[in-house]
Computed example of a mutant assay.
Amino acid sequence: MRKLVLQTDFGLVDGAVAAMYGVAYGVSPELDIHDLTHEIPPYDIFAASYRLYQTIQYWPAGTVFVSVVDPGVGSARRSVVARTASGHYVITPDNGTLTHLQHYLGLLAVRQIDEVKDALPGSLDSHTFHGRDVYAFNGARLASGLRDFSHLGEPISVDSLVQLPLGTVTTTAHSVAGTIDILDIRFGSLWTNIPRQAFTQLGIEAGDFMQVSIRQNGQLRYQNQMPFTQTFAAVAVGEPLIYINSLLNIGVAINQDSFSKLYHIGTGVDWEITLTQLAR
């Protein structure tokens, strides 16, 4: 019996998530079900992809993840189950949700789920709730051991999966640039795709100041000098800082305030951030 972890953009204001739980427990009352989040912004496939990457490696190998951010539900987009190099399983639409896992962790195998043959019995007249009728149902069968990965659909090429564009990281002798991938939502901090190694190669030490420039589609939206610190408390309340986040990437924050809201900074490959070393 594996753990089953659910992620959606459904929210908790109606019965959608509860219906997924009900279907899963109908497969096996002994299932151990958890929530990753149900607050992915509606239709935001990139955020769903990132949250899987943020979370999956901290769960035991064998855990089954069901991720449903599916603006193309009922269309020709495929339903798939993937086995990651870390030994986890993900059931999701083939719409880019596996982008970060494929790029950063690696996928060993992928199979296409038959949305007719492997659907919840009695559900075929509806085509708009595959989260319940295909993904939760098959996630529960896989997690409970009633269906083995090798018998859940037909194998397809990992390279055939839909991939979302990811930002690139570039370095010079005195700077590093990347993109703002996502927010630490509750606190409004900016999480970049710049890994710690690319940053520390500049020889930056705690307390050093850098110039931070943020552009959207090439247009400068923010520029300031701020220190690299190990903790938020290293600067006064309301002051900005650079830090290494929990995924060992570079983050930019304001102590006890929302950087994103204060300066109207968004996320995605259109938002580029450059950190430039200042003369000591």
Rank of each mutant, 00 (worst) to 15 (best):
G188N: 05
L120Q: 08
L166T: 10
V169A: 07
I180L: 06
Y104Q: 14
T99Q: 01
Y104R: 13
P121S: 08
N138T: 03
R186F: 15
L164Y: 12
H174N: 14
V169C: 12
L164Q: 05
H100S: 11
G188R: 00
R147A: 15
T97M: 02
N193M: 01
T99Y: 13
L164S: 04
G139Q: 11
A143G: 08
Q112C: 05
A173T: 14
L142N: 02
G167W: 12
L146T: 06
G153R: 08
H100E: 15
I113G: 02
V116P: 00
A143K: 07
V162T: 14
I180Y: 13
P121E: 11
T172S: 14
Q112T: 01
T171Q: 12
G131P: 00
T171F: 12
R141V: 00
S160A: 12
V158A: 03
Y104M: 10
L183A: 08
D148N: 11
S157E: 14
T99I: 08
L142R: 01
N138E: 10
S126E: 13
L101T: 05
S157R: 14
H103S: 12
G122R: 11
E115Y: 08
T171R: 15
T99H: 11
R147L: 15
F137M: 04
V134G: 02
P165V: 11
A140Q: 03
Q112R: 15
R147H: 07
E115F: 11
G178M: 05
D133Y: 07
T99E: 09
G106N: 00
S150M: 02
Q163S: 15
E154K: 09
V169K: 03
K117M: 04
D133I: 02
L107Q: 01
H151N: 14
T172Q: 06
H103I: 02
H130I: 05
G153K: 03
F137S: 06
G139K: 07
D118A: 12
L164F: 09
A177E: 11
L161T: 05
Q163R: 14
L152W: 06
L101F: 08
A119E: 05
T128I: 12
V169M: 09
G153P: 00
